[in-house]
C-alpha cells in the first residue's frame, strides 16, 4: 500500500496562500511542485502598498 502513495504535492498558484502552503509541505517532508502562470510568484499581495491593520509594507 505504502508504495502507492506518492510523497509529493502540486500547489497551483503562487500567491501568498500557495507560497505558504508549499513552504509548509516542503518543510514537512514532501516534494512540492509550485505552479504559477506569471513570471514571478507573489500574486496580488505583491501589488499592495501597505497591509491593514498594522500598516506593514506588503512586500
Amino acid at each position: 500500500m505504502s508504495k502507492d502513495v506518492i510523497g509529493s504535492v502540486m500547489v497551483v498558484g503562487g500567491g501568498i496562500a500557495g507560497m505558504q502552503s508549499a513552504l509548509d509541505l516542503a518543510d514537512s517532508g514532501y516534494y512540492v511542485y509550485l505552479v504559477e502562470k506569471n513570471a514571478s510568484i507573489g500574486g496580488v499581495m505583491a501589488k499592495l502598498d501597505k497591509t491593514f491593520p498594522t500598516n506593514d509594507c506588503a512586500m
Binding site: V5, G7, S8, L25
Partner: peptide, 18 residues
Amino acid sequence: AATAAGEILTESRNTNVK
C-alpha cells in the same frame, strides 16, 4: 491545506525529497 494534503500522504513522508 498543507495539513490536509499531508495527512493522506503521511506514510510516504520523506520518500520523495532531495
